[in-house]
Design a binder for these strands. Sequence first.
DNA 1: AACTTATCCAACCGCCGCTAC
DNA 2: AGTAGCGGCGGTTGGATAAGT
Length: 231
Amino acid sequence: MGGVAWTEEEDHLLKKCIEQYGEGKWHRIPLLAGLNRCRKSCRLRWLNYLRPNIKRGSFEKEEIDLIIKLHKLLGNRWSLIAGRLPGRTANDVKNYWNCHLSKRLSAQEAEEKQINRNNVEAIRSEPLNFATSPTRLIIPEVPSYQLPQEESTTSTPEVVQQVEDAKEHQVVLQKEDFSYLGLDQEHGYAGDLGMDFQFEEVKFAIDDESSISKWDWDDLIVDMDLWNESL
DNA sequence: AACTTATCCAACCGCCGCTAC
DNA sequence: AGTAGCGGCGGTTGGATAAGT
């Protein structure tokens, strides 16, 4: 193993100690249990192996699908992903991902990204010009450069109509949703690559009515709920 | 059967954020 | 404000085992 394997005796002592004193206070557990292990080892052994209701065996298809979907949303946040999979530990999910899914999906994603590259660059070519208000932010359904400027000094009836038409096709998110997504509220950029990618996925779904993207708006709403709960 | 290579996964390491002082 | 101690997390390691030659 990657370190010194736990013996049955050690497992027994740790289990008995936690049953008696409860989880937490890991710094005291080695002393209380009479174990020559550090607090982290004890915690990890409990969480990944000894804790009741840990699910063993291979992952079911539903679990794999959920892992893939959650990983798209959350990135390598294994504890959050595992939280959605009853009985599975973060370590299990991480190991499964690294052994089974990462290679398979990276090849798949590279292919998808190549297909979508032009669209991404079109969106990225200018900052997304979100209209902001104290409580709401608006994602233009069409790229910002295609939107007429509301503040235009030439507010002819045609321009006014264009603005109204554009507004009809905008998607409105609550401001709080942006913080969940880790978006930079000024420019609409996600704070990290994972969420940036996620955001673009949503944009694809919104931009292209005939989109074959896995993501549609209902997916986002569901996933926003998952995201919200997991924080 | 003997050896090599690939895969799996438990355990460790280093870092981070939070809290108390 | 600085720091120490803690729990928690994700990345990495390396031994065990399976599969291949």
